[in-house]
């Protein structure tokens, strides 16, 4: 019965016409919207006859991408950024998850640390960049410090949320089976909080990726932020746009192919509802 009702949502004239047009193009669902953006972009470029130092055409950007790609420069810059991100994510998880467990499971620790945590959350990692540069110079350490700082807080916060959302009965049930604290941690808290931890990781990656780009703009020494900021100096708009597209694409790839599958897997597997 319920199938009938959902299949018969209130009729709307315009959408059904649009969907009729779109239905045969199902395979193009992802390409089509971008094709539209490129078309508009091209139209703007032509109509106002914009200088290349103001706006590059899609073709120029494509050529620049090929050139940079062929010489391996693009891969080099991208690899630098991705490596940084990977290291930062790993370290942040190693620090953030245990800390989150401690705060989530213990009232006293929570009282002591939560306020400070919230305060630190408000200071964006990038704000520490000048101080980090003074202390660690224009180095990878500087970038890592800033990115880890940015990443770790959302992971801690979401771990706390995850631990607190675990029904007390789960713990009580295992205790009555004679489980040790470690056992309960491993069998209840970790799997129970995992979906929320992954949510924190995704959010942290969103902040962290941007912090990394910003840090690379200031610190230079490789990375996609360096690429687009350096290209600015010579008004190489085509290069900037290549970098922007790559930054977006890489982020989506990491998010969709790495982080989201873990999230869906844990959610689907255990049927845990995210609160």
């Amino acid at each position: 019965m319920s199938i009938a009702t959902t299949a018969n949502a209130p009729p709307q004239a315009f959408p059904s016409a649009l969907s009729a047009v779109l239905r045969p193009l199902k395979g193009l669902r992802i390409v089509l919207p971008f094709a539209m953006v490129v078309a508009i972009w091209w139209a703007i470029k032509w109509h106002w006859a914009l200088d290349d130092r103001v706006l590059a055409s899609p073709a120029q950007v494509a050529i620049a991408a090929l050139q940079l790609g062929n010489r391996g420069i693009l891969a080099d810059y991208a690899a630098t950024s991705l490596r940084m991100m990977g290291i930062a994510a790993l370290i942040s998880a190693l620090i953030g998850v245990p800390l989150g467990f401690a705060i989530g499971a213990n009232r006293v620790v929570a009282r002591a640390l939560e306020g400070t945590l919230r305060f630190l959350q408000g200071i964006s990692g990038v704000a520490w960049l000048p101080l980090a540069i003074i202390w660690f110079g224009f180095s990878d350490t500087t970038k890592l410090t800033v990115v880890i700082y940015t990443l770790v807080v959302p992971i801690i916060v979401n771990t706390i949320v995850g631990v607190r959302a675990i029904p007390e009965n789960y713990v009580l049930a295992l205790q009555s089976l004679g489980a040790s604290r470690l056992r309960i941690m491993w069998d209840v808290y970790l799997p129970g909080a995992l979906p929320s931890i992954v949510v924190g990781l995704r959010l942290g990656m969103g902040y962290g990726w941007r912090a990394l780009i910003a840090a690379e703009m200031l610190v230079r020494r490789g990375g996609l932020g360096d690429l687009i900021f350096g290209a600015r100096t010579f008004s190489q708009i085509d290069r900037i746009m290549v970098g922007m597209v790559l930054i977006g694409t890489l982020y989506i790839i990491v998010d969709r192919l790495l982080v989201q599958p873990i999230e869906t897997m844990t959610l689907a597997r255990w049927g845990v509802l995210r609160k």
Partner: peptide, 10 residues
């Protein structure tokens, strides 16, 4: 994915 700081140079 490219919102915010990524637009800065452009």
């Amino acid at each position: 994915a490219i919102s915010g700081i990524v637009w800065l140079p452009l």
